[in-house]
Design a protein around this nucleic acid. Sequence first.
RNA 1: GGAGGGGUGGCAGAGUGGUCGAAUGCGCAUGAUUGGAAAUCAUGUGUUGGCGCAAGCCAACCGGGGGUUCGAAUCCCCCCCCCUCCGCCA
Length: 422
Amino acid sequence: MLDPKLLRESPDLVRAAIAKKHLSVDVDAILALDADWRNQLQLVEALRGQQKAANTDMAKLPKGSPEFIAKVQEMTAVSAQAKEADVALKDVADRLKQALMTLPNIPHASVPEGRTPEENVVFSTWGSCEGLSPDAKAHWEIAGFEKLFDFARGAKVTGAGFPFYIGDGARIVRALLQFFIEEDGKAGYVEVNPPIFVNAASATATGQLPDKEGQMYEAVADGFYAVPTAEVPLTNFFRDEILDEAALPVKRCAYTPCFRREAGSYGKDVRGLNRLHQFDKVELLKWVHPSTSYAELDALRDDAENLLRLLGLPYRVLLMCGGDLGFSQAKKYDIEVWSAGQKRWLEVSSCSNFETFQARRAQIRFRGKDGKPELVHTINGSGLAVPRVLAALLENNLQADGRVKIPTALVPYFGKEYLTFA
RNA sequence: GGAGGGGUGGCAGAGUGGUCGAAUGCGCAUGAUUGGAAAUCAUGUGUUGGCGCAAGCCAACCGGGGGUUCGAAUCCCCCCCCCUCCGCCA
């Protein structure tokens, strides 16, 4: 959510942001609504003031006195008026709030212009694809794949996109998770094991509700939502709290399974491990001082990149253009790993600075030097998502003998040097 | 799941219909005192929103939402959370 004052005082800044993100929002209508709201608010406050003053007077009058009775009669009318005005105020306030929710975050000046994903800028690349086999197989075509990654049984037991991981398949997932968490810990992120169901208030604070409701699995009886990412419980940890300025930046990481309905997606992009309804991911999250947030974003991105470097998996970093940035992000990098078999880049992390956009919704603040609470900036990104890293690992490291060579850094976690499909 | 007791400012804790944004204590800040500190004394000390160039003025907030009333921290209803006991259980 944007600061309503920003809209009021610099509507052109908001218009420019909408244009850069290639969205279409009627700013003038929201400004008009805001003016209505303020008028109505003043009316209500004037009436309340009247009631309050009368209340003080009446407290001093004898209960049954003629003056008292006259006051009651007078204030009955005011009370009715106040109630009516209050209903009208709530109505305008609701509509204004909803309208404000349609305003996207302001993109940072360093965000490139552009409308489509093709216009994202390649920010950096690491590693070489040359050593990789030109006729590498997509991971689902590797002989014995279904013995370790059983999608058919998963579909029987639950549904499509809920695979079983078996033997070395389960082992490699566990090894990757442990490796990620350990490395993230070395980079200064405190490990957190959060709830994987959240309530509606939490899902609203991070923006899953109301817009993306259809993307979450829901425990209807209790009003809980299965987390689509650890970002949700992690960010909400400090919801409605005021942090100590000296404690910033707060850096945390969390592993959770992630649940996404992925309604409407289909086609070859979703084959194998590319897109699942349940997958494992370690999320990195920082609550930072506004003055340092862009340096902290770059640092977080590098922390995520480092995991791929340690695994020896080639990747590139995209700087998202305005049109592909997303509604609530001020700046975003995507990290994509090279998948030798599919001959395409797979997104494994998306590192974003939300500035105060999330913090305002979630009311996460710190106390500044002058003693006044100020909103923090929030930054997050994956570090990393398992299935696509695993897909690249299987495809890139497949040996002629049908085994997969485990990267040196991962061997201590996996416990052996090769993964076998037997 | 059942029964009972609770949720008030940074913390503790009063307040059971009006003069209550809320006593008192602790904490914190500033000042006085002191060679310095402790102790003591004095003053101050929440958040949000609106109006205003500003000083400031006004309104809201006593777990959340609704209701009764001229008026609600206080009465009624619903929900959430915490504690105690019982049941169940990894």
